[in-house]
Design a protein around this nucleic acid. Structure first.
Ligand code: FES
Ligand code: FES
Lengths: 151, 151
DNA sequence: GTTAAATACGACATATTTTGTCGTATTTTC
DNA sequence: GAAAATACGACAAAATATGTCGTATTTAAC
């Protein structure tokens, strides 16, 4: 099976939620959790992971929170998935720590390499701002630049 | 996470293995299991599922086995995944029996619909014969037709 | 300086999904 | 009738995903 998981959804929800605010405004994990009626702890951890990979930045203490620290035009779904799930191959066989026990007699290795590559490309080409239809100041700017180049 | 699972791999292995034979020759589950050094029962069940969806046909009894019953040019990865995993949405939220408890407050529903659609398209456009680089008589024929149309 | 609200983070617990095994029945050839 | 194969449901085990808890730290407000 091939499915999108919750943590990736939470990450998308967080970005969607935060991108509706002014860039300087802080957002707390509680705020998001309340808004989407989801589990605070899990969502908070996702946001912390996003800080690690510098998608967000955080301020601690009372009145602390998170704010966007990246251009969502340059962020893609592949990257975002890595942020929440850690780096991993999309075809299990090729994952470092997985070690596929069939690999020595496998008759579809090269097809799987191809598939792995195609999946990576697919997710890399999916920009978050496009997917979430975000029109931030930055986003709008980049879009128009893109248009000029394209047209 | 977003990953290809074993059953789909087994199905691909089976098709790869069988497509190397003459169309009339039978292949047993044991034969495939021995060849790839995989678990007989699981592989057998995958082949049985393929019979249900008429990708293969079977003959019972001693000297029984399976043979290809479909044009692999017309088979795509989406369909093959459905055959081994049953019909299901690629974004869990939209799955009939899953019922996403966040859906009433979800702020990314429309993006998820888009993503779901794109994933389906991606897998539907991946033809099995192309992926496995199969050059069966049928396959070769269709390929040349395709070329003529394209060129 | 104490309290409250927030992030930070690891360890654990639970739930779900995936993967494999077993038992048993049926079909067919020898 | 025995052997080799498919057929299939129920179960078991393993892996993964998801959520919870405990505790520490930071900072603003009082
Ligand atoms: S099944 Fe893992 S490498 Fe082919
Ligand atoms: S999280 Fe399920 S519909 Fe949005």
């Amino acid at each position: 099976m091939v499915r999108i998981n919750r943590k990736l959804e939470y990450a998308l929800m967080v970005l969607k939620y935060m991108s509706a605010k002014a860039p300087s405004e802080l957002t707390t994990a509680k705020e998001v959790a309340d808004f989407i009626k989801g589990p605070f702890d899990t969502i908070a951890k996702v946001m912390q992971q996003m800080v690690h990979s510098e998608l967000l930045r955080s301020e601690q203490g009372v009145q602390g929170g998170y704010f966007l620290a990246t251009n969502l035009n340059k962020l893609n779904l592949f990257k975002l998935n890595e942020v929440v799930s850690g780096p991993m191959e999309l075809v299990k066989c090729f994952d470092e720590d997985h070690h596929c026990e069939l690999s020595s007699h496998c008759n579809i290795q090269s097809p799987l390499v191809t598939l792995n590559r195609k999946l990576i490309d697919f997710f890399q080409e999916l920009s978050i701002s496009e997917l979430l239809r975000i029109k931030s100041p930055l986003s709008a700017k980049s879009q128009s630049v893109k248009k000029e180049v394209a047209g």
